[in-house]
Design a protein around this nucleic acid. Sequence first.
DNA 1: ACACTGCCCTGCGAGC
DNA 2: TGCTCGCAGGGCAGTG
Length: 295
Amino acid sequence: MPELPEVEVVRHSLEPKLRGSRILRVVAGAHPADVVQVPLQDLAHAVERRRIVGLSRRGKTLLLELDSGALVTVHLGMTGELTLAKPGEPYPRHHHLSLVLDQGRELRYRDVRRFGRIGLVRPGEREQFERRLGPEPFAPELTPETFHRRLHQRRRAIKALLLEQSFIAGIGNIYADEALFRAGIYPGRPAGSLSLKETNQLLASLREVLAEAIARRGTTIRDYRDGLGRPGENQAFLRIYGRAPGSPCPLCGSTIQRITIAQRGTTFCPRCQPVAPITAASRSETAGSSGSRTG
DNA sequence: ACACTGCCCTGCGAGC
DNA sequence: TGCTCGCAGGGCAGTG
């Protein structure tokens, strides 16, 4: 499931190969209309004979910057793969679209579940693209204070908000669970109930799990590969996501639980992430037991 | 504006 | 062995 770290690794792996390349033509594979958000002729017209001047990322979306000022947006959804091949190599199953480039290269998009999207942002449309997305997790202007202020206005479960791309961009199910676990925050806590201290901890944990995942070239549960076809290494370091309910917490040994929040499977440790925040008083009350009293 | 539901799509693994 | 079924989930449209 490509989230911010995986998209960043794809970006990093492809950028040196794509920068300066000229797009010769667009080739449609299977079900192109399922993944391409504009008519193919419009896409072809906008990209053919254009040069790729850069590759950037916004949230989970990869942006091919063209010399016309237009952007080709690539969202990998659940199972999208953007890889380089040579023209003439056999197409894999579930190949949907290719950009044939100069210098004997072809940028290919395949997506088993077709949840991904390829779009076009014309010059002048950047602002409306940008308006749909919340801040980048690493943006310096995203301080604990501003984050706390925005959380305070919302009543949804904190995890549901972390998954909302218009609230903060780039977080998906894996890193939401990992960050909440590290911060010791119950995923179902109403967002507005987080203290400034907890918000500070959550933001720090988010940045930690994302930075570590990027350094390990992403998390490959099943399908994820970078732009050169290589899997990531971060899956071996996940602390809570993907663990079976009933198995022991790697930190405290308590029984891991699984619930549903915002239609997403949510794995957490009821002891490390208590429903009510741990206070000095409740800590001494329940020390050494699995007491679940509220206080 | 916000909260929430259903839907899209395929592969995989459990169960019979 | 071979079948069915439930599940995985990001984002968007639709509803209240």
